[in-house]
Design a protein around this nucleic acid. Sequence first.
DNA 1: TTGTAAGCGTTATCAT
DNA 2: ATGATAACGCTTACAA
Lengths: 330, 330
Amino acid sequence: MAITVNQIAQKCGVSRTTVLRALNGGGSVKKETKEKILQVAEENNYRPNLLARSLNHGRTMSLGVVTINIENMYFVQSLNTINKEADKRGYFTNIVVCDESLEWERKLIRGLAERQMEGIMINPLNQGSEFEEFLLSLHIPIVCIGNQVSEKITTVQVNEMAAAMDAVELIASKRYEQIVFVCPPLEVQGQQNIYVHEQRLKGFKAAMGIHCSLHSEVVGKKEFLPDIERILSGNPERRTAFLCSGDSYALTIKQWGEKKNMKIPEDFGLMGFDDISVLQYISPKLTTVSTNLEGVAAAAVVELIQQIDSEEYSPKSIILNYKILDRDTL
Amino acid sequence: MAITVNQIAQKCGVSRTTVLRALNGGGSVKKETKEKILQVAEENNYRPNLLARSLNHGRTMSLGVVTINIENMYFVQSLNTINKEADKRGYFTNIVVCDESLEWERKLIRGLAERQMEGIMINPLNQGSEFEEFLLSLHIPIVCIGNQVSEKITTVQVNEMAAAMDAVELIASKRYEQIVFVCPPLEVQGQQNIYVHEQRLKGFKAAMGIHCSLHSEVVGKKEFLPDIERILSGNPERRTAFLCSGDSYALTIKQWGEKKNMKIPEDFGLMGFDDISVLQYISPKLTTVSTNLEGVAAAAVVELIQQIDSEEYSPKSIILNYKILDRDTL
DNA sequence: TTGTAAGCGTTATCAT
DNA sequence: ATGATAACGCTTACAA
C-alpha cells in the first residue's frame, strides 16, 4: 500500500541507495536530486517499514508488556510509567492483555517473542520450573514485576513480607484484639503464581507470632464474605481488623459492611494493599500499603534495558520501598 | 540469538526448503529427515521470526490500539474485549498508551503504522482537518471509538445526544427544579477532541429546551467544585441535580458532598455517564448511563477487520444502544 | 555524487 | 523427496 524506497528510486530515476541517503541523511546527495526525492517521498507519504529495518539490523527497539485483566487494576497503574520510561530510552512499548488464563499468558509471551520484542515485562500468572524453562528458552531479556518465577529471572518488587509485618504492627498498635488476613488468591495456590500474596501471608504469620496474644485467622477463599460475617458475628464484642491482600477485597468488605449499617473503623478495622488509584473516590480513606507501583514499573524498565544492553547479565532481585499509609479505616 | 531456518538447514545438511516443509508441513519429507529437523528445532527452541514472515507475505495479522491515560478508566474496560474479539479472528492486539498529549498520540499512531499494523483503533484526542488528513494519509484501516474525527473515518459510538436527553428526562421525572451539566472537558474545547462531550452537551441543551420551566446551568471547568458549591449554597432550597459527563466527575462531587455531610440524593441529585467498573465499590449506587463500552469495543474490532478484508470500503458511523441505569443517587 | 551487491529470515515458485 | 532462486523493504559495505 504505502510507497517503498524502491518505488521512490524508480520514480526519481535513481538508485535505492541515493534515496536512502536523501531520506536518512548518510552521505551526500546533489541538492536537486535530494529535493526531488524528498518531494516524492512527501507526496506519497513515505514511511519506513520498520519490520524490514528491524529484520536488517536485528533490533526492534520495542519492549513487550503482558498485563493481566485490566479491570483488576493492580499493575495497570504501572503502564503509563513503563511507557514513559521506555520512551525516554528510545524504546516503543507494546502492551498485550491476558485475561486470567495461564495458557493465554504463554501464548502472548511467545507472540511477543516471535515479534522480536527485545525484552518483556510481566507480572506472571504462571509459575513453576516448567514455566521457568519456557521463559529461559526464549533467550530474551525478561523482568518479572511482583510475582517471582525463579532466581534465574530478574524480579522487581517491594518487600511484601516486611510490609505485611508493618501492617500488622500498625493494626496491633491500635488495640485490635483480632486480626484477620483476607487473601482470596490463596484459593488458587499451587495452580497460579501468587508469590506476592504468599509473601504477605508469611509476613502476617511472622508478625502474629510476635503478637501471640492476639487472635488471628486467615481467610483464603474467593467467596470471603460469608467468613467475614461469621467472624464478626461469632464474637461481636471482640475488636477485629481485616488486613486484605489487595485493596479491592477491602473495598468489597467495606461495601458489605456499609450495607449492614456497620461503621468503619468503629465496628471493625480495615486495611488494604497496593493503594490503587480508585481509592481517591472512596471515603472514609482506606488505610493501606503503597506498593509503589510507579517506582517498581520504572525500575523494571531500567533493569530490562540494562539487561538488553549488557553482554553479561546476571539476574537480580530488586526490592523497592513500600509505604504504610495510615489513613481512616483503622 | 534464536536459531533460524537457515541454521537448522545447515545443522541437518539439507536445504531451507526442506526444513520449512518439515516445520510447516507443506510437501513431503522423508521420515528420518523430518524427525531430525524437528528434533534440532526443538532442541534449539526454534521460533519463527514473524517480522520476516510478515515482510514476506505482506501481512502482520496485528491490530494497534491507542489508549489514553489509563487511570481515567474510560476506554480501559474496552481493552479486554478488543483483545478477545481480535484473537477470535486471528489477530494479535498491540496496545500503546498515550498520556494525554496530542503530539504523542500522533507519534504513536505513526509508530503503529510503521510497524505495519493492519488496522488501528483509537479514541482520538486530536481533531480537525489536519489530523483527518494525517490519518487518511496513512492508508491504513482506522476505526475511531467514541470521538469522531470526520465522516471519512469510521466511528463507533453510542447516541450520546439521545442518552443525555434521556438522562435529563429521568432527572426531570424525579421533580428536580434545577439541572446542572458538569462537563470539565469543555475547558479544552477547540484544543482537543471532545466530540463525545459535545454531543452530550447538545442533548442536555435540547432537553432543557423542552423542560424550559426548569433552571439549568452548564459548568465547563476542570476545577468545578467551586461552582458546585456556589450553585448549592446560592439557592439551598432549590432541588438540584448534577448530570456529569463522566462518572469520575460525579464521584468527585459525591466525595465532596459527603465531606460536607450532605446526603445523596436528599441534598442533591447526582448522575454520571459511562458506568465505569469502579462503581461496584461505591455506595449509594451511582445513577448513570451505560455507554456500552464492551459493545462498542467489539463492534469496533468487527468493523476494523471488515475494513481490512474488503477491497472497497466506505466509512460508516455505527451507533450502538446505551442504557439508562436508574440507581440510587437521584 | 552515485550505484552495485549482499544480506536480514521467511515464503513461494519452479526445477530436479 | 529435495533444492535453487527470487522476493518482501531496508541497510550497509564497497566500488565507481
